[in-house]
């Protein structure tokens, strides 16, 4: 006899489990030793374990202490987000992982350079919209502009979308930088 006490369900495999999963978007601020390979380590963790990276920025922030800050925007189920934080936190060069999405109000900014090509009405319209978005003209020729815009990601998305019919050529974005509001350290 094989002890088969549960009725045979068809969706029986453990990683095929299709329970509803809501994904969330989180911004993580990761303080790391600025040593060779640290970025490869973090990126390798994400690719190796199949986590998403929506945006990633990195640069040295405290030169004397050799510390860098990596800001990662990621999406996943709550269980996966917790895993990501724990996996990052146990890496040897990682000092701290702060989940800015849950640790209180935070500022998030991104910078983008946006090239638009056009003449006549289109050109005037592009310039008018740029003003409305507080985008600055950084370069201009008789048939093109390069705008610089800073803001939250969705504001930049929006600006890019409306530039499409006006002759959008290309976009370069920095990725998200983020920090906690108020006087405390992140």
């Amino acid at each position: 006899m094989n002890a088969m006490t549960t009725p045979g369900q068809s969706h029986s495999a453990y990683f095929l489990d299709d329970a509803p999963k809501t994904t969330e978007r989180h911004t993580l601020s990761v303080l790391v030793d600025n040593e060779p390979g640290v970025l490869a380590r973090v990126i390798g963790l994400f690719s190796g374990r199949g986590y998403n990276i929506d945006s990633l920025t990195v640069s040295e922030t405290e030169h004397e202490k050799h510390l860098s800050r990596i800001t990662i925007v990621t999406t996943g189920t709550p269980m996966v987000i917790t895993q990501i934080k724990n996996q990052l936190d146990r890496m040897v060069p990682v000092h701290r992982v702060i989940d800015l999405t849950v640790s209180g109000p935070a500022l998030e900014r991104e910078l983008a350079l946006i090239k638009v090509r056009g003449t006549g009405e289109m050109r005037v319209e592009a310039l008018r919209l740029a003003e409305a978005f507080n985008a600055r003209v950084m370069d201009a020729t008789t048939e093109s502009f390069i705008f610089e815009i800073t803001g939250k990601g969705d504001k930049i998305d929006q600006f890019v979308t409306i530039m499409v019919p006006l002759g959008l050529v290309e976009v370069s974005r920095t990725g998200v930088a983020a920090i906690r509001r108020g006087p405390e350290r992140t």
Partner: peptide, 28 residues
């Protein structure tokens, strides 16, 4: 892909049971 209480035991299991023990998704 089976649960703890869906176990194959050695003594009584026939070759037929063995052939059928794993469903399509379990094979993955």
């Amino acid at each position: 892909g089976k649960a703890h209480n869906e176990m194959l035991l050695g003594e009584e299991v026939s070759d037929d049971d063995i052939g059928q023990a794993i469903g399509a998704e379990g094979k993955m």
